[in-house]
């Protein structure tokens, strides 16, 4: 569905992504893990057309993505849930959701949009309760749900998420990831970027490990979870528990 070959991304003259190759198959959930500054956000923003300075080959559904601007990419079915949510705080929850469907209003899909709005509010009932509240007054977990709901309003076929677990309590992380699994079961393709490697690999089918703009490891999620290097570098203090449990 998404195939990236030898991608290089630049901020001015600084190269932040150094020849990354990666692919996501239809109805697959792929986790991209890596430490702070590895280039994960850069990669997602490049896929969405938000960072135009890149080289290499990116194809979505066999069509090259080069030269496309974000509106065209969103229209083709790729939506981003940005890092830090980036909601529109003074606007109501409903207005935030409607903005997610911005490109569809021109195409007279009013009825379909209202249907999708209901669908998103069913998926996140708490958003229905808060529908008229400004987005800025929501709690962290609710804001993340709103950010995901807003991305879904564009009817994506490929959903990109940038650290959706950031700053959330463990039970909320689980709730969000459960929703992603549910979306995947309903046919969504997902590329999930996380620093919370354990949580991400537990729900993903496959994973890639990004370090300093390179992919250093990739494979099925359960193999990565068991990999010694991954454990040492990304599963943090849990590694000891893991190790102790086996010894």
């Amino acid at each position: 569905m998404l195939r990236i070959r030898n991608l290089k991304c630049y901020y001015g003259r600084i190269r932040a992504i150094n020849g990354v190759s990666l692919s996501v198959k239809p109805r697959e959930m792929v986790a991209l893990i890596g430490a702070n500054g590895a280039g994960k956000s850069t990669l997602l923003q490049t896929i969405c057309g938000l960072l135009p300075g890149w080289e290499g080959d990116m194809r979505y559904e066999k069509e090259p993505l080069s030269g496309l601007r974000p509106p065209e990419i969103v229209r083709r079915g790729i939506s981003l849930v940005p890092e830090g949510r980036l909601l529109f705080p003074p606007m109501s929850v409903l207005d935030n959701l409607k903005l997610g469907a911005y490109l569809r209003y021109r195409r007279r899909e009013q009825a379909a949009i209202n249907g999708d709005l209901e669908h998103v509010l069913d998926l996140f009932p708490v958003l229905r309760e808060r529908a008229r509240q400004p987005a800025g007054t929501l709690s962290g977990g609710e804001q993340q749900m709103l950010a995901i709901g807003r991305a879904l309003m564009a009817r994506p076929r490929l959903l990109l998420l940038d650290e959706p677990s950031m700053g959330l309590a463990p039970f909320l992380v689980k709730l969000i990831l459960d929703i992603l699994v549910q979306l995947k079961d309903d046919g969504m393709t997902i590329l999930l970027v996380e620093q919370n490697a354990r949580a991400a690999l537990q729900v993903a089918d496959r994973g890639y490990v990004l370090e300093n703009g390179h992919i250093v490891l990739d494979g099925p999620a359960d193999e990565l979870l068991a990999d010694q290097d991954v454990k040492r570098a990304y599963l943090g203090k849990d590694y000891r528990e893991f190790y102790d449990g086996r010894a």
């Binding site: 969405c48 938000l50 974000p70 509106p71 990419i73 969103v74 229209r75 981003l80 940005p82 980036l86 909601l87 529109f88 705080p89 003074p90 606007m91 903005l99 997610g100 911005y102 490109l103 807003r150 564009a154």
Partner: peptide, 11 residues
Amino acid sequence: DSEQAACAMGI
């Protein structure tokens, strides 16, 4: 509110 987020919406 956020030009970056607006871009990501395809605006």
